[in-house]
Design a protein around this nucleic acid. Structure first.
Lengths: 237, 237
DNA sequence: ACCTGAACACCGTTCAAGT
DNA sequence: ACCTGAACACCGTTCAAGT
């Protein structure tokens, strides 16, 4: 983690540690982002407010504005941290470009899943943070290695990002509910669809079970394979 | 429109119309949703607050709770109205299932585009409103007509929805900025990418122009064709 | 330069009170 | 049953004042 600081000695009983508790705690941009990320992981994106982050730093919300421009910038910095956690193939192997691209996408999904609904902050923006650059470079390199045209590569990097972010948001919504509630919800949805009048909604009726069954992994891979195979099919064609 | 009411007579000068201005204006669920939709169209989803909608109805926010459960339910009702605007193929023609499915998706994109960032409200939820049922039924019928398996149809209806909603959100973010600012933004993005050190980011560098060029129609169709052709390719294979 | 308290203009929701 | 005013517990941001 980037929150690395001097190791905290074991608490000596009854004695407040003068080094850690007395030193004038200075704010910094990194400290703000650290805390914002911690709040995100603990309680989700809605809990990441200026006031909450300030509270955690034992100060007022106005104090944060010396280190981040505004809330949007703060959240985008958190997003950049998260993007930086995505493991990139090293080195790029032209012979395995599709496999490496797929692995990258699967890994990216796992990273988003570790950070609640941060994907929501990535929706509709082009990431330009420091950490986004190696990611975009790598995706472009993999597409290039596969012989994909520049035009298709430009479109593909967009749509891959769209897919990763959109599935990230979708899955974080599901993850927000406790597992019990989640299963219960899909059972209710199945019952709702199954109870519709078969003359008006025959297909929903017949598919109620299969539309509410199946794990997220299958759904993610299905969409991902559609995209990646489609991109690959443009080569030579 | 579902806001149909008695025709309003031309204003007689200097005389308030006693019928419309004097009758005790009663609230109703429909009236609340009408206003919420109007606020959405005028100023976007962030402006759709309980207080703003209540204000428009010349009452206080607490009064709305007699007609809608809470804000989420109100916004979902607005979403359902919008979904109801999507024109459905009539009748479904099995021979043209792919063309009709594509037309449906294109029409759906246009409907979302007419209603600001309402797509944001559809992200991560399974629409269950009244108007969503004919839509889902039709998509399933088209997939069935194409000979797509039940498993693939269930996955496809999901991913098509994900794509429509995600592109809707993305395009609404762009549309929110005035056209000038929008073009300016892509120029800045191009310059930012083009100015990166070519030794570390050769591909971003080379692709800066092509990644910031091209219209939204092309991007939407590219992704849509990837998905639809991929779905079609599962038949017989 | 950095930090702060107080204020401004907002939120969603609840609740007792009114009709 | 429907509507209301007032209150509660929140928001992001600004600004004058302090160090």
């Amino acid at each position: 983690m980037s929150t690395a600081s001097a190791p905290v000695p074991p608490r000596r009983r009854g004695r407040p540690n003068p080094v850690s508790s007395r030193a004038p705690r200075r704010l910094s941009r990194d400290a703000v982002i650290d805390v914002a990320l911690a709040v995100l992981d603990a309680e989700g994106l809605d809990a990441v407010t200026m006031r909450r982050v300030a509270d955690e730093l034992e100060t007022g919300p106005a104090s944060l504005y010396a280190h981040v421009g505004d809330k949007v910038e703060m959240v985008e910095a958190v997003l950049d941290r998260v993007i930086g956690e995505i493991p990139l193939p090293h080195p790029v192997d032209p012979a395995r470009w599709m496999a490496q691209l797929k692995e990258l996408c699967v890994a990216s999904r796992a990273v988003f899943a570790r950070h609640r609904d941060i994907a929501r902050a990535a929706l509709g923006i082009v990431p330009t943070g420091e950490q986004s650059l190696p990611l975009i470079e790598t995706i472009l390199a993999l597409l290039h290695a596969g012989g994909v045209s520049d035009r298709v590569a430009a479109l593909s990097v967009d749509i891959i990002g769209l897919y990763l972010v959109a599935t990230g948001v979708e899955e974080s919504v599901e993850a927000a509910a406790p597992h019990e509630t989640h299963i219960e919800y899909y059972m209710q949805l199945r019952d709702f669809w199954a109870a519709l009048p078969p003359d008006r909604f025959p297909r929903i009726n017949a598919m109620a079970v299969s539309m509410t069954t199946g794990d997220d992994d299958e759904r993610f891979e299905f969409g991902l394979d559609l995209l990646l195979r489609g991109i690959a099919s443009t080569v030579d064609a």
